[in-house]
């Protein structure tokens, strides 16, 4: 599904903001996630916290999708991607080039440029982008074989802000795996994304900061499965007028 790698789970899970390492591990298992996102940060302090985090992730046997979170320039993102490729021994990179700190809106110009540089260097880029069609087209031109449009700003729990835009993106790129990345709050948001025909959902805060992250991980996994099944079952188009479900023909004449 992603760059030639077939996965059975359509839920990609972030690893940040969980109340404890144990809850993180339990949530990943409950979600049935086969891919988790990770970052690179300064290894500081005597406790060397990155080393213990890494041993947890490794023990779960999941695939790792490193990100370039927090990068604001092409140079920063490209350098981070190189460090991630060495660290995690994977060509996969979730490419983030952020422009605005309030909305964490991607700098789509920098994103396209960084995607081109990295793709030419053998990276398999998962760009965190908006639902803009022209940008998506540029990203595909730059070598991306997966697109990850936001549902809403990262961590905002708003769900799908622009269903029309996401639908148009799906219609324009029927062959490209599409992942709604960021902004979801509850499982129904994820189900809605899957009902639009999206291939997968990437979540973090909605699970990690729920009252019970493990139960929420499971709930999201079920919603994503239900949404996918519904999409495959070809849902009805909405209509303005009622359409009686009970046959009219054969109704007894009981009026005066």
């Amino acid at each position: 599904m992603f760059y030639g790698v077939d996965l059975s789970s359509r839920l990609l899970l972030g690893t940040a903001r969980y109340p404890s390492p144990k809850v993180l591990a339990d949530a990943i298992r409950a979600a049935g996630a086969e891919v988790v996102t990770v970052s690179l940060r300064r290894e500081a302090g005597p406790e060397r916290s990155g080393q213990s985090f890494w041993s947890i992730i490794r023990s779960l046997g999941v695939k790792v999708l490193p990100n370039t979170a927090g990068c604001h320039s092409v140079k920063e993102a490209v350098t981070t991607a190189h460090m991630a490729r060495e660290m995690f021994d994977t060509p996969w990179i979730k490419l983030e080039v952020i422009r605005d700190d309030e909305t964490l809106q991607p700098d789509v110009f920098g994103l396209v440029e960084a995607a081109r540089v990295l793709s030419e260097d053998g990276f398999e880029v998962f760009p965190y982008t908006t639902e803009d069609l022209a940008v998506a087209d540029r990203l595909v031109e730059a070598g991306c074989k997966v697109l990850m449009p936001w549902g809403a700003p990262i961590g905002s729990a708003r769900g799908l802000n622009n269903v029309y835009g996401l639908k148009a993106l799906r219609a324009h790129f029927p062959e490209i795996p599409l992942v709604v990345d960021a902004g979801l709050g509850v499982p129904s948001h994820a189900a809605a994304a899957m009902e639009l025909g999206y291939d997968a959902v990437l979540l973090n805060t909605a699970v990690a900061e729920a009252g019970d992250p493990v139960a929420m991980a499971k709930a999201f996994a079920m919603a994503i499965e239900a949404g996918r099944m519904a999409f495959a079952a070809k849902p009805l188009e909405p209509r303005d007028m009622a359409a009686p479900s009970t046959p009219v023909l054969g109704k007894a004449a009981l009026g005066d």
Binding site: T15, L40, E43, S49, M83, M87, T205
Partner: peptide, 10 residues
């Protein structure tokens, strides 16, 4: 010198 390690990320 920057020295980075695997960390939690979304």
């Amino acid at each position: 010198l920057e020295v980075v390690a695997p960390m939690q990320g979304g």
